[in-house]
């Protein structure tokens, strides 16, 4: 798993590639936390290069969404969710908790 964070004026763009399971989810969670610690609560998560995500990744996304949306200060939105991952998120009832966009330009522009 690799994570890159890019700061835009109104939001952070975090791109994750590879696989997120219980061994890599803590690093993923820390990257999301770090944005919040820097006072950034509008986050675009680019999942286009993600091959796999277990519920450990869902858990990190849920925790981050809670933190971002607190006091209406922001939101975590998803970009280019791969089909298999989207299906698993749907099974878990998670799709309604996150806005999704097809591309990161539109997502960044939404903030």
């Amino acid at each position: 798993m690799e994570i890159t964070t890019q700061e835009f004026k109104h939001c952070d763009l975090i791109k994750i590639t590879g696989r997120i399971d219980s061994s890599t989810a803590p690093v993923f969670g820390k990257a999301l936390d770090k944005a919040n610690e820097n006072g950034r609560f509008k986050i675009v998560l680019d999942m286009s290069g993600l091959e796999y995500m277990s519920s450990a990744g869902f858990r990190a996304m849920l925790a981050s969404q809670r933190n971002c949306q607190r006091y209406n200060r922001g939101e975590l939105v998803l970009v280019a969710v791969p089909e298999r991952i989207r299906e698993a998120l749907e099974l878990a009832g998670f799709t309604e908790l996150f806005k999704t966009f097809d591309d990161s330009v539109t997502a960044v522009g939404s903030f």
Binding site: S55, F58, R59, R66, A92
Partner: peptide, 24 residues
């Protein structure tokens, strides 16, 4: 079992793995 329709603040993550196993 997880409550799949609870709003964000009430959503619990425990039990999700077991639930997914049964669904998959």
């Amino acid at each position: 079992p997880p409550n799949l329709t609870a709003d964000l603040s009430a959503r619990k993550i425990g039990g999700l793995g077991l639930y997914l196993m049964h669904k998959l």
